[in-house]
């Protein structure tokens, strides 16, 4: 456990009488794509919010690369290498793609309390935002307003914003949500290409995508970890089939 890049141990989160997260243990190795799956209401998004710091856990600890993140505010976790995307696309819709990228890059290049120099004169910032645009295939839409872009492109921009932090662990909360088959295939390819850069904790409903991408899978049901293992083991796991895959197949 201690050798893992990232580990969450004994995470508990209660909302009133509801135990949304019930002693969840999770470990992600360096270079791994680890999928977190489970039926609707299993508590996947709660786990992501606990890990990224949007919610405070009632118990448990979170460690990334030997640094204890528990109790750290969300923005400082990002500085320690933990970055995330959102289930609902969260970009700055009124701004251009380039301005979105500049803002993301700015968070990690120098202080944002500097208030006298014009940001437009910061060439280092521009170069990094441009590089990011090229890597994520956004160079063609650089000066388009984000809200006017197709859904798939906005998802890619969302991912670009998260990558600006150069994270060691990237949390992807349903990156394929609401996408058609073509966009999904592109996103799968894109996520696979990120394997070199960082470990990924992937929350996803699209089982095809999960089986294509994941090295290991953790199954969550009613806030508890039902099983963790290699893709093949999870597929064959009888309880998992009953709780999740079975019900999906029947649906």
């Amino acid at each position: 456990m201690s050798a893992s890049l990232f580990s969450a141990q004994g995470l508990v989160k209660r909302f009133g009488g509801l135990v949304a997260t019930d002693h969840v243990d999770l470990a992600v190795e360096a270079g791994e794509i680890h999928a977190l799956i489970g039926p609707n209401g299993a508590g996947k998004s709660t786990v992501v919010n606990l890990i990224s710091g949007l919610l405070a856990p009632d118990a448990g600890r979170i460690v990334l690369d030997g640094v204890e993140l528990t109790g750290m505010p969300a923005h400082r976790r990002v500085r320690h290498g933990l970055s995330r995307c959102f289930q609902v696309t969260s970009v700055f819709g009124a701004n251009t793609v380039f301005d979105n990228l500049l803002l993301a890059v700015q968070a990690h290049t120098g202080s944002s309390f500097r208030c006298l120099g014009r940001r437009s004169a910061d060439t280092r910032l521009h170069a990094r935002a441009l590089a990011l645009a090229h890597e994520l295939g956004l160079a063609d839409v650089l000066h388009r307003v984000a809200a006017a872009l197709p859904h798939g492109v906005q998802r890619r921009l969302d991912l670009a914003l998260a990558l600006a932090a150069e994270p060691r662990l990237l949390l992807l909360d349903e990156p394929m949500a609401g996408m058609g088959p073509e966009d999904s295939a592109q996103m799968v390819a894109l996520i696979r290409s990120l394997r070199e850069r960082c470990a990924i904790l992937l929350i996803e409903h699209d089982m095809d995508a999960v089986f294509q991408l994941a090295d290991r899978i953790t199954v969550l049901a009613s806030g508890r970890v039902l099983a963790t293992g290699e893709v093949g083991d999870i597929r064959a796991h009888p309880e998992v089939q009953a709780v999740y895959l079975g019900s999906e197949a029947a649906a």
């Binding site: 949007l54 701004n95 803002l103 500097r114 940001r119 932090a165």
Partner: peptide, 25 residues
Amino acid sequence: ASRFGHALMGIRDNETRMSALGYPV
């Protein structure tokens, strides 16, 4: 027009995202 100003406008537009980008909102 500064870095501070841009960060502030980002917070106005989407505070949660700014925090997730690493800004001390």
